[in-house]
Design a protein around this nucleic acid. Sequence first.
RNA 1: GGCAGGUUGCCCGAGCGGCCAAAGGGAGCGGUCUGUAAAAUCGUCGGCUGAAGCCUACGUUGGUUCGAAUCCAACACCUGCCA
Length: 318
Amino acid sequence: MLVGPTAAGKSGLAAALVRRYAAAGRQAEIVNADSMLVYRGMDIGTAKPSEAERAEIPHHMVDLLDVDENATVAEFQLLARHAIEDCRARFVIPIVVGGSALYVRAIVDDFEFPGTDPAVRARLEQELATQGAEHLHQRLSAADPVAAARILPGNARRVIRALEVIELTGRSFSAVLPEYRYRLADVVQIGIAVDRPTLDMRIATRVEAMWAAGFVEEVRRLDSAGLRGSLTASRALGYRQVLRYLDGEINEAQAQDLTIIGTRKFARRQESWFRKDARIRWLPYDHPELVSAAYALAGPTGTGAVPDALAPAAEMKD
RNA sequence: GGCAGGUUGCCCGAGCGGCCAAAGGGAGCGGUCUGUAAAAUCGUCGGCUGAAGCCUACGUUGGUUCGAAUCCAACACCUGCCA
């Protein structure tokens, strides 16, 4: 699978890899692990692979939801794992490509998400609104001191989820992330590394190109399709800023600037997530033989495993 | 040309004689993260230093004062009203 910050060139490399596998007589397909690509209609702002590309190469986990629906990790995890299994059952190499670290880990690592309940959730939200975050955190302290100690009082979102889980399961809420151990077999993670000045430039260029491609119109269209009704979709980078512009809160130039800045910050967060995962093999974005290098890491079967006949490359095995 | 106001750290912006390296916000940098993750959240934030401390800093130059970002004068630039 391919990871890395936004605008690093993951999609391009993924497509090149698929073609490389095709040339070697192996079929490969792409499984998206990017939280916003699941929305139909959110195309320009998410730099979604084009129609042509998707006609050439099958993409899974793209265009599953309408913009007025909420996305959740748990559902994504389930569907993405199905997609991967489905590929493997057909002897197709699944190439997972994504920049949403939690989504990526939810797919390949041992993540189990306790259920959710809209009613419980709504009540807790209500409690937050009327009594404040501090109060909720105190309640959590009483119910589960360990979890409370690990979650800062100001982080109401996490406090609510912890209380929800405790209430639904009756068990304490483990606020600890699982270890970095693959749950899926034969995973190779490849990261694309880009130095900051270059990445920042690419982000600015990409955002400007989005605008030139009619991004504002896209958002206007999705707005009337109910974009604001989705907690998740309406918060997407760029979309959120353009909505503010459409509301007259800021001007168009500001919306664009804020999108660039927001994307840059997002890229930093992505980096900090991926940086921690020691399993990722990093390749520089400007590697002269990037595709070959990635192919060598992934191996001819996409599993990192190298047949004995190709022994010299064996140390590439992850 | 006359009158009034302004010039603060990377940016915006408060301060109006000592408690000011200077509130607050933004950017930057670093961290946290299990059902909103393109989200949420915390810290840090002039330089040197572990610290005490020192240096540089509130348009410029001079002055008043024990002491000035804060008061005075001149100059520069910007803004508003009258022409």
